[in-house]
Design a protein around this nucleic acid. Sequence first.
DNA 1: TCCGCTATGGACACCGGTGTCAAAACAGAA
DNA 2: TTCTGTTTTGACACCGGTGTCCATAGCGGA
Lengths: 338, 338
Amino acid sequence: MAKGQKPTINDVARLSGVSKKTVSRVINKSPLLNQATREKVESVIAELEYVPNPQARALALRRNFLIGLIHDNPNAQMVLGVQEGILDTIRNTEFALVVRPVDRHSPSMVEDIRGFIEQQRLYGVMLLPPISENDELAQACRDLGCTVVRMGSARLDDDAHLVASNDRQAVSDAVAWLAEMGHKRIGFVAGPEGFLSARERELGFAEGMARAGLKPDAKIAARGNYRFESGLAAGQKLLSAKSPPSAIFSSNDEMAAGVLHAARERGMSVPEDLSIIGFDDTAIAAHIWPPLTTVRWPIRAMAATAAAKLTRPETAASEPSFFLSDLVRRASAIEYLP
Amino acid sequence: MAKGQKPTINDVARLSGVSKKTVSRVINKSPLLNQATREKVESVIAELEYVPNPQARALALRRNFLIGLIHDNPNAQMVLGVQEGILDTIRNTEFALVVRPVDRHSPSMVEDIRGFIEQQRLYGVMLLPPISENDELAQACRDLGCTVVRMGSARLDDDAHLVASNDRQAVSDAVAWLAEMGHKRIGFVAGPEGFLSARERELGFAEGMARAGLKPDAKIAARGNYRFESGLAAGQKLLSAKSPPSAIFSSNDEMAAGVLHAARERGMSVPEDLSIIGFDDTAIAAHIWPPLTTVRWPIRAMAATAAAKLTRPETAASEPSFFLSDLVRRASAIEYLP
DNA sequence: TCCGCTATGGACACCGGTGTCAAAACAGAA
DNA sequence: TTCTGTTTTGACACCGGTGTCCATAGCGGA
C-alpha cells in the first residue's frame, strides 16, 4: 500500500496473513469464522483505519448504501426535520442520504421514481406524506427490491415499515381542552380531501367534540388545502356565520395563520375574541403574533426511527411505530371570555 | 441478456458487433471514433434503453456521480429551495444529490465532512452560508479532489465556483426606497458578527443611507443573531430610543418578525406607526400580519446554476455568477405618516 | 509493389469488493 | 492409524464499467 493511499482489502489481507475473502467475512460478520482469526484481522483493520469502499461493495452486491428520501414538499420545516432525523441515525455508518423532491401531480411520477431507484440502486426509500399514502408507489418501490418506510399520520396498512403519529388522539385532546376552557362554539378547518392526515384530524376533531358533549356545526366548518390562502377564506366564512365560533381548530399552522389574518381583517383580537389552534408546529407558529398554540409531532425522532428500520432491519422494530404528538400551548388560545 | 434484466455494456457491444471498449468510447464521447461506428452503437443503445451502471463507473473512475449539499441549516426554506434548484439541474442525468447537515460549532466538523466526501467519493460539493464562508473547509474539500461551489452573498474569493447574490445593492435600494417615502429615522438590525452575509447587508444599509443623504444613528441600530428573540430585543431597544425610528430594516425576516412583535408590545401599529422591512422572503414573511416587505433572492435559480457549475464544468460559467435580489413589497412598509 | 504512418478498434488488466465451491485443517470415531 | 464429518479458509470468477497499449486497416508516397 502506497503511503497516503487509502488501504484496500488486499492490504488488510496481506498484513494479517489471510485471504481477502476472509477479510470480507470479518467485515460482514460472517458467523463461520475462527475467533482468533477474526480478532487478528480486526486489529489490522483498526491499525490501518481501513474502511471498505462503498462503490465496490455497491457493484458487487448490486445494491448501493444509499437511502432515498422522496417527498413532494409537505412543508420545508418538516422535510428538513426529517433529513436531520435520518442523519441522526446514519451518521458514522456507511449509509448516505439522497433526496428526491417530486411532483405528485406529474403523471410520470411513479415512473420517474422507479428510474431513480433503479439507477441509483437504492438500499431503501422513505416516503413522506402525502405521497406516503400512495400504495401504488410504495409497491413499485418494493418491486424494485428496495425497502420502503412510510411516514404518516395514520395506519396505512399492516406494514411493519410504518412510522406514524397519533394525530387523531392529539386533535381530540386539543379540542377537549378547548371545551374544558369553556368554549362551546368550536370551528374546524379541515385539510384537503383525500389526505389521510387530513382525514385523521377530522376524526380527531369529531372525537374531541363528542368527548366534550358538543355537536359539530357544519356552518362553522370549512375545508382548506393546507395553504395560507385557503385558511384565510375558511376564516372569513366561519367568522361571518350568524353564530360565529369562539375558538377555531385548524388542521395545519399555515391555514391557522390565515384564520388569524381573517380575524384581524374583521377587527377581532386574538385570543380575546377568538382562540386559534393549529397543527404541525412549523416555524411560522412560533413567530406570528400571537404565537400559535399548536400540535407538535416529533418529526426528527420519527425520522430517526424510520431510518433505523431501513438500515438495521434486524434490530429495529418489526412492527409499526407510533409516536405521541403533543399540544404546545402558546398565546393564541385561552379560556372563553363571554 | 436475460429478459427483464437491465442491459449491460456487453449486451450493447454484442448487438452492435463492436468491443465493449468501443461502446465505452461512445458513451464518453471520445473524439477518435468513426462516425458510422458511433451511430450504429448509439442506435443499439437507444433500442435497448441502455443506461450505464453508475456504481461500476464510480468504481472504475474512483469518483461517484453524487453531489453533496453541505449546510448548517441556515433556514429550512432556503435549504429546500436549494435542493429543488439542484434537482432542476440534475434531474435526468446520472447525478444524484446527497445531503449532509452539519454542526458548524462542532470541532470535528471539517474532519467529519472530509470523511464523508472521501467515503462517498463525491463528485462535487455545494456549501451554503454560513459555512460557505469557511475557507479552510472549502480547501479541504478541494484537496480531496472534489469540486466545490459556494453559495453566498458576497465575493468570497476569485473562485469561478461562486454563486452569489448582490445583497448589498438590494439593501441599499430598499433603504433608498424608504427614504423616498419620506422616512428620515431609519433603524437597522444587523446580523451576527463574522457572517459575510450580515456584513454585506450592513454595508448596503450604510450605502443606502448615504444615497439618501441620511446619517445612520447608532442609537437606533442593534445587532442580532438572525433569531426571532434577538430581533425582539433589538426592536425593544430601538423603539424605546428617545427619538425612535419610523422605519426599521432588519437583516433577516425572523428578526423582522421579532421587531414586529416588539412594536405590538408597545401598542404600536404596523405599518401606520412603524414600517418594517426584512430579508430573505422566507415563508414567515408572507404569513405574519401584516405581510412583510422583504428582499428575496432567487435561491432556486442560484442553486440550479451552482449545480450546473458542478456537473457541467465545460459549459457552465467559468467565472463567478451573481444574481439580483429584489424587493418584495408587501404591507409592512408604507410611506411616512407624521 | 512495398513501406511507414495515422486513424480506429480490441484484448486484457484493473477498480475493490463478494459469491461459489472446493481444499485444508481439525476433531472424534473406528 | 485411518477414515469421516465438520469447521475454517482460500482460489477464482464476477459485478460493469474504464485505461493502457497493441493490432489492424486504410492510405499516400517511394
